[in-house]
């Protein structure tokens, strides 16, 4: 089948051509920089700061920022710098797990629906439309409220159960267009099985779109987690960014003007969301030449 590599109508390797745009795409670069700086903080931070100080009653409570406690301490006697260092990787991990599971499931469903069509497509498309209509928070909430105590991993899987619809939808649409391309036709004429065409001809050409879906899914998952956490349904004993915001509001950090308590998690979350957003806009432009020319 290697002779097919030069078949007419075959596009140049889409991953490489997309990667080629990274260097010339300021949005993508800025987004990657923001997100990787947070990843770096999550990776290096624990080496410099004792994350045990993120536990309650390990420091005097309600202290404003000082040399001893650069971000101050909260009402429960946690060192907030340690809390930030400990909670950032938890939030990132949650987003990665949920985003990955959602994207894999969504890609599989979208590929099957778009490529094989028929009644499979009907079922998958209807299920996708139905699940997209239901506000994700309504379902997440019922689950989380029933389970009560959740770990970060559990929350990630609950959220992943609602993270597959958008990837499935966009992958399906793309597959519908790819499957009519000349190189798929040639593979079919040369006697390649449908399954092999789906896996080796169509799937590789979906990779850039899968990448974009993944970034969007990670951002969506962290957003969903933030929603649950804002309602107090996040992990109670593991610090995450959303739970830090929740505790600060619950214990009146706003009214007591303890800005050092609520502001840092909001700032880190904002950096994370803006970074992921820039990456996905940048990827969009790399994938869609018309948009690139405009900006």
């Amino acid at each position: 089948m290697t002779s097919l590599g030069t078949a007419p109508g075959r596009r140049p390797n889409p991953v490489l051509s997309a990667l080629g745009h990274v260097a010339t795409n300021p949005k993508l670069l800025a987004g990657l920089l923001l997100v990787s700086s947070l990843v770096a903080v999550a990776a290096i931070g624990p080496l410099l700061v004792d994350t045990d100080m993120a536990r309650p009653i390990s420091a005097p409570s309600n202290r404003p920022p000082s040399l001893d406690y650069p971000l101050g301490t909260d009402g429960g006697g946690r060192d907030l710098l340690a809390v930030m260092i400990a909670s950032t990787p938890q939030t990132l991990r949650l987003g990665l797990i949920a985003g990955l599971v959602g994207t894999i499931v969504g890609t599989f469903l979208g590929l099957v629906a778009g490529f094989f069509g028929g009644w499979l497509d009907k079922i998958i498309s209807t299920a996708t439309d139905v699940m997209l209509t239901i506000p994700p928070l309504a379902v997440l909430l019922i689950v989380a409220a029933s389970v009560r105590t959740v770990s970060v991993e559990m929350m990630a899987f609950i959220i992943a159960a609602l993270a597959w619809m958008n990837p499935a939808r966009s992958i399906r649409a793309q597959v519908l267009s790819l499957r009519e391309r000349a190189y798929v036709e040639i593979a079919r004429i040369s006697g390649m099985s449908e399954l092999r065409i789906a896996l080796f001809e169509v799937l590789p050409n979906l990779l850039p779109l899968i990448m974009a879906s993944f970034v969007a899914a990670v951002s969506g998952a962290i957003l969903a987690a933030l929603g649950l956490e804002a309602l107090g349904l996040g992990p109670q004993d593991t610090p995450t960014l959303g739970m830090t915001v929740y505790w600060s509001l619950l214990y009146g950090a706003f009214g007591r003007n303890m800005w050092w308590w609520w502001a840092p998690p909001i700032v880190v979350l904002a950096i994370l969301f803006v970074g992921l957003f820039l990456i996905s806009v940048g990827l969009d432009e790399a994938l869609n030449p018309r948009l690139r020319r405009q900006s």
Binding site: G227, A230, V245, A270, V274
Partner: peptide, 14 residues
């Protein structure tokens, strides 16, 4: 547009 990538809830608090 970049500003509005910050979620509803966080914008509300800000």
């Amino acid at each position: 547009i970049v500003f509005s990538s910050i979620p509803y809830y966080l914008l509300a608090l800000i």
